[in-house]
Nucleic acid binder design. Sequence first.
RNA 1: GUCCCUAUCGUCUAGCCCGGCCUAGGACAUCGCCCUUUCAAGGCGGUAACGCGGGUUCGAAUCCCGCUGGGGACGCCA
Length: 468
Amino acid sequence: MNNEIRVRFAPSPTGHLHIGGARTALFNWLFARHNNGKFILRIEDTDTTRSTEEYIEAIVQGMKWLKLDWDEGPFRQTARFDIYRNYVEKLLGEGKAYRCYCTAEELEQRRQEALSQGRPPKYDGRCRDAEQHPDRPFTVRFKTPQEGRTIVNDLIKGVIEFENNQLDDMIIMRSDGTPTYNFVVVVDDIDMRITHIIRGDDHLNNTPKQILIYKAFDWTPPAFGHLPMILGADKARLSKRHGATSVMAYEEMGYLPDALVNYLVRLGWAYGDQEVFSRDELVNFFDLENIGKSAAVFNPEKLLWLNGQYIIDSGAAEIAEAVLPFLVRTGIVRADESLDKAWLSKAVKTLQERSKTLIELAASLKYYIHEHVEIDAKAKEKFLKPDNIKILAELKAALENMSGFTAVELEKVFVSLAERLSIKLGNIAQPARVAITGSTASPGIFEVIELVGKDKTLKRLGKVIEGR
RNA sequence: GUCCCUAUCGUCUAGCCCGGCCUAGGACAUCGCCCUUUCAAGGCGGUAACGCGGGUUCGAAUCCCGCUGGGGACGCCA
C-alpha cells in the first residue's frame, strides 16, 4: 500500500463551509475515490483567536450534507502543538530558523512604510544574526535561502519558477508559542503521508515557501495541484456580497446536495459535453487533467436549473421525504401532523417538473394539503367572473354526482360538460383551477382534483360560487 | 510597488498539449415556434465568443513574443 494516494481537505474553522471550500473538498474527495485512495479531514485551527468549535461543527455538517465522507480525521492541529514545537526546535538547532525580536507593531509600521514608498513589503531579515535576548518575547522565523530559485511543478498549472529572493523569512512560530500555517501544513502533510495537495490557487504563492521547508527537513514534497478560484458575477472573489456563499444556506433554500455537487464540479472541470452526472460517474470520470486553469464565475441560475433537473430525475418518494422538513419549516404542516406517504408522493410527482427547489415544491403543496386556498386577486378578477361562476356551479353539480373521483373519470366529466355547454375545455378548466388551487398555474387540473379529493374540491367550489 | 496565475458566446465550458476535420460544438440565461386545460417539462430554431498586436507556417482558436484585461499573493490569517 506504499503507492496509496492520500489527499486532505484542510479548512480553518473561522467560518462556515463555503462554496469555494466545498469545491476544494469535493475535488479532493473525487481524486481520492477515483484512485481508491484516502481522503483525510484536517482542521487547521492554529489561529486560536479566530477558530471556534461551532465552525468545526458547521464544516463537518456541511461535508456530511454534501456526502463527502472522509477516511481519517478530523484531525485538529491544536492537538498537535508538541509535535510542531519539536520540529521548530530542530530547525533552530540546525541554524535554519532564528528568533526574531521585532514586535508586531514595528513590523506593521515598516510594512506600511514600504508599501507607501512603493517598495516590496518584505521582512529585511534584521534579526537573522541578532544576539539572543532570553528575557524578551520572540517569534521564530524560517531562514529562507536568498539565492537560487524554487520550482513548483503543478499538476494543474504546470511548471512555475520563483526567485528565492522574492521570498521572505516567514514566521513559523508566534510569540505566544503557537506555530503558523506555512509551517504546520508542511509538518502535517508529511506526518499524514499526504501524496497530493489539491487546494485553491490562492495558495500558489505559498508553495515555494513550503517547498523550502520540506527541503530544510530533507523531506520529499508531495505533488501539488492548484485549483482556480471561484468569482462572483462582477469577477471579484466570491464573497457574501454575491449572495449565499455558505453551503448550508443552499440546503435551507431547498437545494439538493447532489445538485450542488454537480454544479460545483462543473466549475472548472468538464467531461466533454456532459452536464449531469451521477456520483458514480463523477468518481469514474474525474481526472485532474480535465481541470481548467482559469477562474470561474459562480452562476446561481445554472445551479437553479440543475437543481430542477435533479428534482425531476429523482424518485417521487425520495423527494417527498426531502420536502417534509420544508413543509414544517414553512408552516404548511405542523410538526406533529402526519401525512400519508403514498398520497404525498403522488402529489409531489405532479409538482416535480414544476419546482426548481424544495421550497418552491413545498409552497405548491399547500393547495393539496390545506382545507381552503387563498385566491390570487388577479386570477380571481380574470377567471372568476359571473359567467364563469355559472360554469363552476354546473361543474360542482356534475362532480357531486360522481361515484369515483380519479383523474381519468374527472376528465370525462369535464369533457362532456364542455360539450353540453358548447364551450372549450379550457373555459371550465381554468376557472376550476383558480377556484381549487387559487392560482392560474398548476399541474393538470384532473390530477390536482383527484389529489385534493372530492370533499375539499366541492368545498372550494362552493365557496367561490357563493362568493364567500 | 514586487511576484505569481490566467484569457473561446453575458455565464459554465468542448476544442488547444499532438496546427488543417472549426463556416468554433454543448449547457445555463435570453428570444421565437411547436406541444397544450394553465404553468412547467419536453421538442425545434434564433441571437451570441477565439481580447489586441506582432511573428512562425502553405495554413493558427490551436505554437512563440509583446500588450491589455481579469484574478491571486506579499499577515505573529489560513
